[in-house]
Design a protein around this nucleic acid. Structure first.
Lengths: 237, 237
DNA sequence: CGGCTAGTTGACTGCCCTCAAAGACTGTGG
DNA sequence: CCACAGTCTTTGAGGGCAGTCAACTAGCCG
């Protein structure tokens, strides 16, 4: 029995060494094979699903943002991933969910029945292959983050995170140098393996170094893309 | 195009919250579908494959130990995983390998042609599903390690690592409290996101605390399993 | 014996965590 | 409109864990 709950993304999300990827063929194929599915709206802080919930659907994020996390025995929280429009959430979980999926903002989500998905995989080997590929990308992203978190400083981690968001925006045709953070400092901290205070201090430091500007705490303007990029990839210092 | 090189394991390897899993159904199925394959022997430090090598085979480790790692622009090394007998290495890579696979000791490896694997997946959706499940477990392990590395102290990380090895041994019918480390301190350090010195110091500290004994640097005897286990799972202190 | 590699130990530094308090923003009720 | 509470964020002071640099030990093989 599987217990993973992961996000299948159009592209590798976690920065640094990612290369442009084609749009999510697996997601497209999935949507076609499984029908259109039911649309649901989640308000900020609503949970799409929780740990222990039986797996009934796979969720395609159409608008908004979803934070995938799990909580530990001691109450600590580990943010596994953020899902953006176009991402699929909850795939890979058979039986019950091991993670929580919580909207960080008002989100529109399409629900695809899991039974239909499984049947489709059994019937069409190509779909299975596509899902394997999507999973592989997810695994690469996870290992990329693993390296980032285990080897890099707070500044490099945050730079890496911001450059990742920037690239995602750019691929979606939005501004690469100005965007709104769809998550809190706590979310970022739990994602990057830092504390809220360190995240905040590091934002301040990046601003002081002229890398970014912060008109509001959630509005990031990258003022030195090359510098930030170099920091993210460990090319600076 | 995929670039992942991952290890498909019989069970979740990375400690702490893993539960016993059945033997690797995917690996069995794979071996049956793809024929027996060619046997090769790798001496210690030999590479099974390197970054950039074209993907021609998937490798089933029959004896010995293989270290999966990648090197970074600045020369640093990131150990992604260790493969043990029964594990499959190199699956998920289509095109060329993104990682290196190096035998840490004399190893016997069975080579399964990748073309046969892909064909088998296309023909048999169940195999694709099995591989998805294996990938999901791999992803869970990766995220488990991510949490361990991002949130835990050196002592907890090493305890977690040792308990993982211990459980693996136990599942294979070997002694759970005494085993030989098949990798160097450097390998462990690059896996856990620590330095060689810290790994060494932490071994010394665990010995001082009566958790383990080290007759030789590679021979670990767990003298306080419950204590070490508690440390690994963050239940101590 | 000398050279090489792997591992251990020590001294020191520094990054990030912890604890604490104050500021910024939002929504609610008077 | 303001007061207030609650949440999120920022900033400060201090301490601890792990990294860095360096020296030494232990095997192993020529």
């Amino acid at each position: 029995m599987l217990a993973a709950t992961f996000v299948m993304q159009p592209e590798v999300q976690t920065v640094s060494y990612d290369t442009p990827q084609p749009r999510n063929a697996a997601a497209d194929l999935l949507a076609r094979r499984c029908g259109t599915g039911q649309l649901r709206i989640f308000e900020a802080k609503d949970h799409v699903f929780r740990e222990g919930d039986p797996v009934s659907n796979v969720y395609l994020v159409e608008a908004g943002h979803v934070c995938i996390y799990r909580t530990l025995a001691d109450g600590r929280r580990h943010v596994i991933d953020f899902a953006y429009p176009g991402d699929i959430v909850g795939l890979g979980a058979i039986g019950e969910h091991a993670n929580n999926a919580q909207a960080t903002a008002r989100s529109r989500v399409r629900c695809l029945p899991i039974a239909a998905l499984q049947q489709a995989i059994r019937e069409d080997g190509r779909l299975g292959l596509k899902l394997c590929e999507a999973l592989s990308r997810e695994l690469i992203a996870s290992r990329e983050l693993l390296f980032t978190v285990s080897q890099r400083t707070a500044g490099e981690r945050l730079a890496s995170f911001l450059i990742g968001l920037s690239r995602r925006n750019e691929r979606n045709g939005a501004d690469r140098s100005e965007f709104v953070l769809p998550m809190t400092r706590a979310d970022i901290a739990d994602f990057l393996g830092l504390t809220i205070e360190t995240v905040s201090r590091t934002f301040t430091k990046l601003r002081g170094d002229g890398m970014i500007d912060l008109a509001q705490s959630v509005l990031v303007t990258i003022t030195d893309y090359d510098g930030l990029s170099a920091l993210a990839e460990g090319r600076s210092k």
